[in-house]
Design a protein around this nucleic acid. Structure first.
Lengths: 229, 229
DNA sequence: TAATCCATTACCCGATCGTCTAATTTATTG
DNA sequence: CAATAAATTAGACGATCGGGTAATGGATTA
């Protein structure tokens, strides 16, 4: 039994595998289940089935093959992000085409692994990703970094009033924020959370103050840009 | 003595630390040298000294603080990349400003760590990065991924009912959209563009329809996510 | 136990929003 | 020239928003 080195949490990480090749699927499951802190809770051989299982199990991590029949992995990830779980997605493929890598990572994947990855390394990635880390395979890391907008700005003075005075949102407020970002009105948010409109408004007000913005549009934009949701 | 889990190489990873705070420097060195596969070969307290040491030792991995006195970490990394060693750089900072993260990663860093990282985790990152992995701290992972060009813009998805049925915005509408994304009210937008509120409202209405959204929040989020602004 | 934070609900009020209809002017294109 | 699209302005409507203030119950913490 293999143990983690750095992580100290003991919580089991639930994983769903979406992969069309049965053999690969079995391989992935075995490799991951060999770790007692990782538990493969379901498997799917296509995106549609995968999405159902994801909605049902709300796993911590999703292993998503990109070359799926029918709906491909990219589309699946986009739909996956529309459902509002915070499952982390690992894109798994044998391709190293730049467009596919960028497409995957910009569509919801937090990690990109090539299929020749060492099984034990994959387990490490699953752990990393479950904590929110972005992990990109060496073979495609450079092309990904190259795709980032270049910054000519050599104006980096430590004027960060940002991280300092930041007041953290409560869990409930985060829920509200997610709905807010999706464009819901206070009434709709209230309906979603099964509370009164007054409550929703109160949360929104609190969010605006904590995020130091004047209205919900600024809050939504800031949330998206800073990856809060 | 801590051992790696996944990696099987036995080669020692040489590391150079560039960090102005002596205390942090000592902490980093101790944390890393506690691993027998990692060897801190040199330390510098500013970028100039760091570059000299890097040229001399050609380390596998460079731990680069971004907030250095004099030449900052970003500049140092750019100069570092001009020398053509394949040293991998880990940007180390306590800031989580989006611009700084993107700047670092697009200027040569393969990894971005916040300084509150678990020391043992940092050793894992050093190992990962030495193999070419791109590793990004959970706190800033999402904002980095958001900075990648969107799928729609790279035409990965062949179907795209989106790109086809999409009605293009006029120039004026784009102007309005930018202000809208920045959280301005119709009145403020009107003032900016030196038109009446009615005009601003008309444009916004038109934008909402063309973008197939119900309100300005959805428009703003969509605009940001799709990199329209 | 007292204090504090959070979630919840409620009411009020002015400001803003989104949609509608309708009109004028300018520019471009057929 | 005629037609079309874009930009502009206007008034009016109901819906929604954001900011106050205030109260209650539950949970956690000092």
């Amino acid at each position: 039994m293999v143990q983690k080195t750095s992580e100290t949490k003991t919580k089991t990480i639930s994983v769903i595998i979406v992969e069309d090749f049965k053999l690969t699927r079995v391989g992935l499951r075995c490799a991951l289940n060999a770790n007692d802190d990782i538990n493969v809770v379901a498997e799917a051989e296509d995106a549609v089935e995968g999405l159902k299982l994801i909605e049902k199990h709300k796993p911590d991590v999703i292993l998503m093959d990109l070359g799926l029949p029918g709906m491909n992995g990219i589309e699946a990830m986009i739909k996956c992000k529309e459902m509002m779980f915070d499952s982390k997605i690992i894109a798994l493929t044998s391709h190293d085409r730049s467009e596919e890598v960028i497409a995957a990572l910009s569509s919801g994947a937090s990690a990109y692994c090539l299929k020749d990855i060492d099984p034990q390394k994959l387990a490490d990635v699953v752990r990393d990703v479950s904590t929110g880390v972005c992990w990109i395979d060496p073979m495609v890391a450079q092309m990904t970094l190259n795709a980032l907008p270049k910054v000519d700005n050599i104006g980096f003075l430590p004027n960060k009033s940002n991280a300092e005075g930041r007041v953290p949102l409560t869990e409930r407020e985060f829920e509200v924020l997610k709905h807010l970002v999706s464009g819901k009105s206070n009434t709709e948010i209230a309906k979603e959370l099964i509370v009164s409109v007054h409550t929703a408004k109160a949360h929104v007000c609190s969010i605006l103050q904590k995020m130091c913005v004047n209205d919900r549009v600024q809050a939504a934009v800031k949330a998206v840009k800073e990856g809060m949701v």
